[in-house]
Every structure is written in C-alpha cells, then in structure tokens.
Design a protein around this nucleic acid. Structure first.
Lengths: 339, 339
DNA sequence: ATGAAAGCGCTAACAT
DNA sequence: ATGTTAGCGCTTTCAT
C-alpha cells in the first residue's frame, strides 16, 4: 500500500494520473459537458484509485455557487427542531443542496453571530426559526443575497418568505376547546417568556380568548431548565397546593404536560374528570403515556418541507416572497373531554 | 435607505469606501498584523456601514484553513446525539472552530456520501460516531489529512483517535447488576440489530455475561420504528403474555424501558418486586417518571467534550492517536433493587 | 504601518 | 470531444 501523501490531492494529480487535461477531469467529476465514454472511465478509475476528494472550497469560489442551506434554530434538545430538520433534509435529499445547522440557544446575540458566520459561506438559502430578530440580524437577512425563509411562526413581519403557524391563534383555539368542554378554573404552566416568543404568543392568545369569555387565568407558573417531566410534576404540585380548585391546566409544551399528567395519576386524581390537561406540539414521542395528552400539532415536518421547497423554487428565478400559514390540528386525546 | 446591491460586497468595496488598501482592510477585519488605530477605526466603520460580510470561501481557499469540524452522527432524533453535540459545541465555542453536522440514518452508504461531502470542504477535523465503517469510509478517514475522532464506542479499531465507552462491557456490567440483585428469568427488548452496532454489542456483552452464570435470555424481542414509549408498552405486553414468569426485562434504551415501566404500573405489577427493569443511556428527559428507571449513563456530554478537545489539541502539532475509554456509571434507580 | 504581486484549486467562457 | 485562458475573493509573502 503506497504511503498517502500529506498534501491533499488536486485535480491536477488526477489529470496527470489519467493523462487527461484538468478541465476534462473536472467535467467528468461533475457529469457536466460532453466527455467520451473512454476518457470518462479512465478518469473515474484514476480518481477512485487515488482516492481523490474534490475541493469544494475552490469549486465554490470559481463557480460562485455554494450548495448549502443555512438552517438557524434555537436548540437541538427541543424535539421540535430535529423534526423540522428532518423535513428539510428529506426535501433536499434529492437535490444538490445540503442543510447546515446553526444553533442559537434562544439568544439574539448568538443568533447574530451564527447568522454572520453562516452568511460568510454565501449559502444558497437561509431558513431561520422565528420572526423576531435583532435589527442587525434583520439587516443581514435582508442583504443576504439569497432566499430567506422564516419558519415556525407567522405572527410578525418576515423579511422574505415565511411558513409556520400562528401561535396566537393556536393559543386562542386551545382556549376555545377548553371552554367548550366546560372548564372554568384554568391554570397555565409555561416556559419563562423572554426566551421563547412562540410560547409567549400562545400564552397571549390563550389569555385573550379566556378574557373574551370573561375569564382570567386562575393561576400561572413559569419554569426554566431541568427535566421537563420532573418540572411538570413539581409545578403541577405547587400550583394545585396553592389553587386546589383548578379544573384545567394548560402547559406550554407536551413534556411538562406529561409530567403533570403522571403526577395527577399518581395522586389518583381523575383526569380529565376532575382536572383536564393540554399541552402543545403533538410530539409522537409521548404516544404511550397512560392517557393521551390533549395537544396541538405544530406542523413541524411540513414546515421543514415547505421551507426547503421555497428555497429550491427560488434557486432559478426571482419569485415573489411566499407567506404560508399552516393549520395546526387539535388532538383532544384523553385529557380534554368530560364526556 | 440606499438600495442594496445584488452583488455581495467584497473587500474591495470596503477598501474603496474607506480609502485603505484591500490588504490593510483584510488585516483589520482579521485582527492580524499591525494597523494604526486611526485606519482600524475607519475600516471598521466602513465595513459596518456597508454591511460587509467576509467571504469565507475565498478566505479558506487562500489560507487553506477551514475552521470547520465535521461531525457525522446517525440521527438527531435519538436524544443521545444532540447531547454529544452540545458537548462538542460548547468546547469549540471559545475557539475559531465550528461544528458542522451530517446525519447518516444509521446507513453505511449514507455515511459514505456524507463523509465524502464533508471532506470535500477540507475540515480541520472529523468527529464520527462508531468504529464500524465501510472500507471506502475508512479509506477516506485515513486520508482525510486532518485529525479524526471516532466516538461513542471503543470496541473496535479506530483509524486515529477514539473516545467512548465499551458497550460490550456495559452490557456485561448490567447483567452482573441484575444477577446480583437475584433476578434469573431475564428478557431483552431491543432495537433491530443491523442498524445499531452499539446496541448489538450491549446485547452481546449482556448475553455472554448471563452465559457465564449458566443462564440464557428467557425471551427477546426486537423492534424498529414508531414511538419508543408505545413500543415499550406493546412489546412488554407481548413478551409477558408469551413468557409470564419473567422476573426482569432489559431494554436497549431508556425510552422503550419507560414504556415498559408505564405498562407494568398500569397493570398493577410490582416493580421491581415482581419484575425488575433496566434501560440504557441515562437520559435526563425521563427524570420524573413514577419510578426512576435503572440505567447506565453513556457519558454522552463528556464524549463530545473530549472529542472536540482532541481535535483542538491536534490543530498545531502532530500528536499521537489518543484512545479513551470512559467509565459509564450505573444507576440502579427504583427498578433494579429487591430490597 | 502599509501596499503590490502572486496564487490557493477550481470552473466559466472561449477556443479548437 | 477536449484544451486553454482568465479569473472567483481572499491571504501569503515580500517590499517599502
């Protein structure tokens, strides 16, 4: 076995090894332009034998085409985002485009940094979670020179394209469903607001809708950090100790909702008879709980797919900005029906 | 507001706007070399005003330095990998290096493609899950021309560096703990093998250790796809219908284990008195279940941190390959003690 | 402290 | 069908 050279191989090496000009080698390796079957084979053989890996840096610079799509999301630990990512990856799978992920930890300063970093690779498109960004970020997006799709949330003013759901409306809808089922003493358990605009909007929509029915949130509690399941237990316990006559708790996500559910069942409390519950997200992960938690699907997969498609559609022509508001489906499950 | 030009800005634009040579502008923007305070300010002002974003493609080509670390993992949906990623990101946070993630879906053909794709960006390092790879992938890794760290698993022959745990030993250890607690009729519920080498190795270590005690797996079941929680319920039900005298079930991960636990509790079965349970991974997510599931921490975060550090250490000198086997900690929890 | 020239490895555009 | 030439936007190196 020949000792591999320390220097990475270049087109030139393949060219010399195959006795074919660099240009033709390049054509073969990209399946571009007419190349005779004979030379094609010789080149492919040489490239394979040497273990040549093309240098995309050089290719991208020369062609000013970078087949990367920057995907900027707040977190990977949240379940929600990996699912969006799946939708994106799958849609891009059969295309030359490739997603590259950057994580912001729900922090605008980090979003700025990540965005700057990614834009400096001159991607073919940007998919970014949320419609709230710092002025600097908005300016960068506006000048990105490539299609931009803001995802997850439609309550705001996108720079270019947008696909998501209205979280305000989602909050309202859930409030309606709860009221219609006859619950009246309603508590809310959520994540600390400043971090998560979408959770905040759901809360706002929720309280506003209750307000229209002349009701107020009977109790509320906000958490941050820790295992969501454990937090759900803990906060549910706290809330019921403080406000024992609650007949419903709305959680800002399914995981804490599940924690609450497990707590109530442990205590032998009748769900949904004595207390009803609902979460948000419709995470498949939780199928298999003792009761199916009422929730609302955030259309994560679809959002990913649509966003990727918007980027693809805009690779050639200069299409108009596209704004898509998806319809989240409500699942009443076993925790929001007093039948 | 001036209409932004379609063409992305170049150093030259900043140079002209500031009346400073391209070279000096470059120096300012990279904090490299001596520049007088006066020019530095003028340049920074101009760059900011224009909204200049440097072109890393060109920079990387010119300097043949690409500050990317390729991270190749099987999946993002598995919890486990996002945690490894956190460890990596955090360690690289304060350095010029940046992780870029590629996902293989546990498929070797896809791993090859992803690896080729990533290597064609000439990254400063590669972190890749597992030690089992196709010959082609191994060849690519060997010739990558940058440090390579194989992670998660130490049972095999790494190309360069390696940090992880021995899943065979993990399986053995869990078997020992179970035997020591006095369980004898032991069932196994796992993921379908060919996909996941680490799960397979745990299973092998587990059965081998039982064998040493003269025992065989009393029943076993493998699943693929679907909600792990629901599968855990379902398979536990099936297994106990078929083999009612089981006194222990070992699950290949915590999520199906949790499903099993919820099922048994629903049925009013005494855990761990009548049946003991254990999973694998030590996912924090599950703190808050009615019982704490016995499990083993796979050191995910540490693995990420160490791997990133190995890459960092190898940026300058040519260090020796480093092989690190971590010690997973066993948590007996509430489901593996017949006190 | 600043500038000028050369070239990173590839591809677009034009020969032939 | 194949080869030649001139850059892509930056950094390296060497001058000044």
């Amino acid at each position: 076995m020949p000792k591999p050279p320390r220097r990475p191989l270049t087109l030139r090496d393949v060219s010399e090894a195959s006795g074919v000009s660099e240009m033709t080698v390049s054509r073969v390796l990209r399946n571009k332009g007419d190349v005779s079957e004979a030379t094609r084979l010789r080149v492919q053989e040489a490239a394979k034998r040497l273990g040549y890996v093309p240098n995309k840096i050089a290719g991208a610079l020369a062609s000013s085409r970078v087949n990367l799509v920057a995907v900027v999301i707040p977190s990977l630990k949240n379940m929600v985002f990996p699912e969006v990512l799946s939708g994106i990856s799958e849609t891009l799978e059969t295309t030359p485009l490739q997603p590259v992920v950057g994580v912001t930890d729900y922090r605008q300063d980090k979003e700025e940094k990540v965005l700057f970093e990614m834009l400096s690779w001159r991607p073919s498109g940007v998919i970014i979670a949320g419609v709230e960004h710092s002025d600097a970020s908005k300016a960068m997006l506006a000048r990105a020179g490539c299609p931009v799709v803001e995802i997850m949330d439609t309550d705001g003013e996108p720079v270019d394209c947008c696909v998501g759901i209205s979280h305000r409306r989602a909050g309202r809808q859930m409030a309606e469903a709860i009221l219609q089922a006859g619950y009246r003493r309603i508590g809310f358990v959520g994540t600390k607001m400043p971090l998560d605009h979408r959770a905040r909007k759901r809360f706002e929509g929720f309280t506003r809708q209750l307000g229209k029915a002349g009701l107020e949130i009977a109790d509320q509690e906000f958490y941050s950090g820790g295992s969501a399941l454990a937090k759900g237990r803990e906060l549910t316990h706290q809330m019921l100790s403080r406000t024992p006559d609650l007949d419903f708790i709305y959680y800002s996500n399914d995981m804490i909702g599940a924690g609450g559910l497990l707590y109530l069942l442990d205590r032998g409390i009748d769900v949904p008879g004595q207390i009803g519950l609902a979460g948000f997200n419709g995470v498949e992960l939780l199928d298999g709980l003792p009761r199916q938690l009422a929730t609302m699907d955030a259309c994560r997969r679809t959002i990913g797919e649509r966003a990727a498609q918007m980027i693809l559609d805009r690779q050639e022509g200069d299409l108009e900005p596209e704004l898509v508001e998806l319809e989240p489906t409500v699942t009443l499950g076993d925790t929001l029906t007093r039948s």
